[in-house]
Design a binder for these strands. Structure first.
Lengths: 244, 244
DNA sequence: ATAGTTAGCGTATTTTTTACGCTAAGTTTG
DNA sequence: CAAACTTAGCGTAAAAAATACGCTAACTAT
């Protein structure tokens, strides 16, 4: 068994997009061996844990995600660190961490990641599923420790990254409609886009490939499906300018 | 005396711009109490140290910079974390850290910051000055531990941030010429810009204020001086678009 | 058959970017 | 003092991108 490092953890904000809303995957805090009314187990938290002493940080993050959610090989990006000496001050949260980790935890610095998953194509482990919940990003309840703050910062980082990198496709199914793509940008960046201008802009991109298929199961005119061609994107990418 | 945390450090890549080149401030490794030919003290490193147990991470970074370089109140941005379990494997570097910190250091995760300073207006502490060196960013020698890799990533982060945030001004004197600003963008982003188009673009920005002064001491036609008006910038800022 | 919804194509206008030509103001050199 | 040199600084023309709309077609539900 690898030893856990009681000073450093990873926490991960997992984003998903259901076609209309941005969601975050949260998990119920693990139950204690002995029930304790001061330490309820229905409070939610980010998937995260102490790192193991033999792993690099990214490896720890991948492992923790696998163990807690069943998700594997997903987009993961380190975006910040939270290390305020008082961040664990909520006494029942801290007690919970001490009991479950079986370590004399004092200060923990956590490396924060955000992750993007295809919400409909992901296969979370069934046995873990019951304890995980997709919650809308703007309806997050009070979480343990400073996890609310971590989500806020993750959202900032996601918005910023979405403006310059083609990461939106990580949140969409492999085959998606232009409407889905537009909704994604509208929801995450928070402003309406003109349907016709969006299609015009996006239609010129040679790394968005139209497929000989249409969506189905919708109660309106079915739209054409597209895929994102990563190779073409990186082959033809040119430097963006700068906006002082 | 505050206790040092032997598991977590901060390291800082300090960038400066002299009007023509991007530089990084490095320091000579501290001498050991007893000389040891295996552990030379003329090798360079990033300013950095273990954090103190009572400080938030940013505070640690500011303190360490003050102690090692005399720099105070400077632009500081956390951009990554380096925690590979083998990152301290160079045995003489590790031994040096153990002796100087007087702690049983094993694995250290380091929080990496980059910092932007006005190279001509900064007042490094004289007594520390002898052990610090401004080195051109593309001529960095082999440093201790993984500090070369940290600088590479800092450069990536700086370039990325420079495209969307007004951080270039942190590297220029308070009063600067448009030529200096243009050189800054050319050097950091690595491509030539057309003099006339650059001036046209920049001339339309109402947060770049022309001062009733010209530069002097140059052996050509002196240029007008400008300043960056931060308030106006943030007041009039509007969201940029997205580039898929 | 009709109403309702989204897909999808177009046009006109404004703004931004790109690619240059050229003169003016200062310094250095012979 | 004149000529050569360097950078500052103003301009124009064309291309590309962003913005603001009008309109029809295709499909579903009632």
């Amino acid at each position: 068994m690898t030893r856990l490092n009681p000073h450093i953890s990873v926490d991960c904000v997992i984003f998903g997009f259901d076609g209309a809303n941005l969601k975050v995957l949260l998990i119920e805090r693990e139950k204690l061996p002995e029930e304790n009314p001061d330490i309820p187990s229905d409070i939610l938290k980010l998937p995260g844990n102490l790192i193991s002493d033999t792993e690099d940080l990214d490896e720890s993050a991948y492992r923790v995600l696998r163990e807690l959610t069943g998700l594997d090989k997903i987009f993961l990006k380190q975006f910040s660190v939270f290390g305020n000496p008082n961040r664990l001050d909520n006494s029942n949260d801290l007690e919970w961490l001490r009991v479950t980790s079986e370590l004399p935890v004092e200060r923990v610095v956590t490396i924060a990641y955000y992750s993007l998953v295809k919400i409909n194509e992901s296969n979370p482990n069934e046995s873990l599923l019951s304890r995980t919940k997709w919650i809308e990003a703007n309806e997050i309840p009070k979480l343990i420790f400073d996890h609310n703050q971590i989500i806020d910062k993750a959202l900032d980082a996601l918005r910023k990254e979405l403006r310059t990198e083609p990461i939106g496709f990580e949140l969409l199914p492999k085959k998606f409609t232009l409407r889905q793509l537009q909704n994604l940008y509208e929801v995450i960046l928070g402003n309406k886009l003109d349907n016709r201008n969006f299609r015009k802009k996006v239609g010129k991109l040679d790394y968005l490939v139209a497929l000989p298929e249409k969506e189905n199961g919708v109660n309106h005119k079915p739209a054409q499906l597209y895929k994102f061609d990563k190779k073409t994107f990186y082959k033809t990418r040119k430097d963006a300018g700068f906006v002082i």
